[in-house]
């Protein structure tokens, strides 16, 4: 399994799709061998990516409501910053942030960080 993954992640960045594939104020899931990644698109078209797990009870953040540069977890309404992964006070915690690059409308994720546990 390790072997396979090293092959897959020879590049630091992997293309996963287009900005248009993600609904505005919405999210899509990228399945990865290191766990699901949620890719978000804000109203201003900024794209973010987080590990698809709320630091609270592992709720799938991809299913939450996106507002500003935050997402509200669908399970217990924790609010998570898309930029830093930090949970908005008074709760505490941090979801893993994945690097995102958008070039000519194409989204790439920084998968190099994934193997390290992101």
């Amino acid at each position: 399994m390790n072997q396979v993954l090293q092959t897959a992640f020879e590049e630091a960045w992997i293309t996963v799709g287009c900005v248009e594939d993600v609904p505005v104020l919405g999210s899509r899931v990228v399945k990865s061998a290191f766990g699901d990644i949620a890719v978000f698109r804000a109203a201003d078209d900024t794209v973010f990516a987080l590990r698809n797990e709320c630091p609270h009870k592992k709720g799938p953040l991809s299913e939450g409501i996106v507002h500003g540069h935050s997402v509200t977890c669908p399970l217990h309404n924790w609010v998570i910053s898309l930029r830093t992964g930090e949970v908005a006070g008074p709760d505490e915690g941090c979801a893993g942030v994945i690097g995102v690059k958008v070039e000519a409308g194409v989204i790439s994720l920084e998968v190099g960080r994934l193997a390290g546990g992101g």
């Binding site: 996963v16 799709g17 594939d21 990865s32 061998a33 998968v111």
Partner: peptide, 15 residues
């Protein structure tokens, strides 16, 4: 349809 399908699957190459 986008709601129900992942956008991509990565790292599963040949696995």
């Amino acid at each position: 349809a986008h709601e129900f399908a992942p956008m991509a699957a990565i790292g599963f190459k040949e696995a």
